[in-house]
Amino acid sequence: MGDVRSMLTTYRHLVGAKIRSDWQYRTSFVRYLLSQTVVTALDLAVILVLSEVVPSLGGWNLSQVAVLYGLTTLSFGLGDLFVSQVETVATHIQLGTFDRFLLRPLPTIVQLPASEFALRRVGRSIPAIITLVVALSMAEIDWTVDRLALVPMTVVAGTIIFGAVWVVTASISFWAVGAREVANSFTYGGGFAHQHPLHVYSRWVRTLLGWILPMAFIAYVPAVHLLEAPNPLGIPSWLALTPPLVAIAAVVVARTVWRAGIRNHQSTGT
């Protein structure tokens, strides 16, 4: 336990150092923060525009889709803030600067997100939180204690699942440095896809982005239960309680893949 605490202290100092560094480039910081916020808000604008032309998407009304958008985008935004920096591993390998991380007495998977932390990414979470709060209050939810607890639990588990997906897709760089775009199409694709009900997609998209990369658990599965929304896929309601378990499993898988990647890097040196 003492080890974890001192690691957290180190993490905090590394993040603090990065924020102080970035703050020297204030205009660019503010610019990125704003553009991240607007990009994320545009996705919401799409949902609003579509709700004007059709009353529902896949049987879900505006406030239901907005809850989905809020949950997905908040988890995506937090995962983006705390974990997505692992994708810089591709750049570090290409520049040869990844060695520096291997030479320090801290797991690389802690060092990278800490050293590359970018506070400006918090911009994604801003429209997400606002939308989530507004949509939850509009969605005519039958609030029970378990439903109340479900929301924060889903956000935490969802953030961890997104983080794990990021680690796995970033690990591809250990084997194929140029594959960053492919990796991004899963992470960013997943973040976009799950803003809309999973059942509007065809089976192969659902399988890939929903279950193999278990991003259905980030928002759709719990939201079906929370909102008592149309459920053409027949998701059982007990499944809504499983995101924390999925999150744990995802972390185990991500850790294994990342370690295998490090080992491969150590033997090929590329």
């Binding site: 100092h13 590394l14 150092a17 520096r100 030479l103 007495p105 801290l106």
Partner: peptide, 28 residues
């Protein structure tokens, strides 16, 4: 301790003293 002459392990945008303080935490 390792020094690669061509690559820095210091924090580029921060004062030198800050790098040393950070290393105190990294190496505990």
């Amino acid at each position: 301790g390792v020094v690669f002459g061509q690559r820095t392990q210091l924090w580029w945008d921060l004062p030198l003293a800050d790098s040393f303080e950070l290393l105190h935490h990294v190496y505990r």
